[in-house]
Design a protein around this nucleic acid. Sequence first.
DNA 1: CCCAAGTTTCAATATTTTTTGAACTCAAGC
DNA 2: GCTTGAGTTCAAAAAATATTGAAACTTGGG
Lengths: 174, 174
Amino acid sequence: MKPPSEKTAGRRKSRPSFEPLQPHEIELADFFVRMAGILGVPRSVAEIYALLYLAPRPLNFDLIQGRLGMSKGSVSQGLKFLRDHEMILSVKAPGSRRESWMPTPSLASSLVALLRSQVLPALEQATPSLKRVLQDAQQNGTTPAVVERLERLNRWNSRALELFPLLLPPPPGS
Amino acid sequence: MKPPSEKTAGRRKSRPSFEPLQPHEIELADFFVRMAGILGVPRSVAEIYALLYLAPRPLNFDLIQGRLGMSKGSVSQGLKFLRDHEMILSVKAPGSRRESWMPTPSLASSLVALLRSQVLPALEQATPSLKRVLQDAQQNGTTPAVVERLERLNRWNSRALELFPLLLPPPPGS
DNA sequence: CCCAAGTTTCAATATTTTTTGAACTCAAGC
DNA sequence: GCTTGAGTTCAAAAAATATTGAAACTTGGG
């Protein structure tokens, strides 16, 4: 908490209260929250994104926290997530060492980055497992039908791995 | 096809104990569980699917419950989910009124059905909201940049709705 | 150096989702 | 119309996830 040196005198330089969310902000947030849900992204992250999406200019940490009424921890983690997935950009205001945030220009490529980060690792990690399962099945004299299934699964996996980079080219920095 | 492979003839017709999962079954289950996780499908469902995927022939309720060691409730709900998403087929053994289950031939179309059922409703439901948010923004004199963002979002939404049925044709029964 | 604004960390807590199991339904055969 | 096997339902328990907030960390300026 704050040390007992709170200046009560006169007006404070930053208002303690923030404008509550407007109806259109709530509506867009709902949309992003639903979409995020499909990909397993937590609500708080989607809310932050929605807020930035409708903001005419970049917002800083405190504004986000205040307007969404969420904890510092959540804002910090939410921004980290969005940063890590290249969904937001920071703009440093010249005189201040604060960062302000805005959505990256392309939502499409943001989503791509997100999908990539979820699906690709899973596919990659699965490859050796799938191969093992197939070999195992072939040796232990399983039904041809099962072997066939597993072969298809393997083909699928490798095709997906090939195709992924073509469809969704990785960003420059990776 | 009765179970003549049970060499332990002359015993009780239903054993109280079931074979524990084999390593390859566990490995495949892990894979399906991970993939399912991305789409928010619960672990128990993925496990059931994996078991059926490796089974040389259709399995009935009790076998599934016994081998996976899960509750009746979970098996029932899991099978319901898989049925609803057209990921499994039932085969009624003649003579018995029990159903046995096997995976549908195409995992690909199973996944398609699943994706469809998750994403499409969200997109459809969102359309009017997105339109409202855009109009609101246009009227309330928001920055051109924000209006532009929202226009793009709307275009995106309608394109996705158009494209979806083309890429992923709905099954005959809907 | 030291301070303090700005942010991150993470253990504790709250919330949401999944699983369980006992009570119930539903047909089929008697 | 009763019994029984097969499965479903759903409230309550367990597990998994997300959020909170106070303490710790970082960094630029004095």
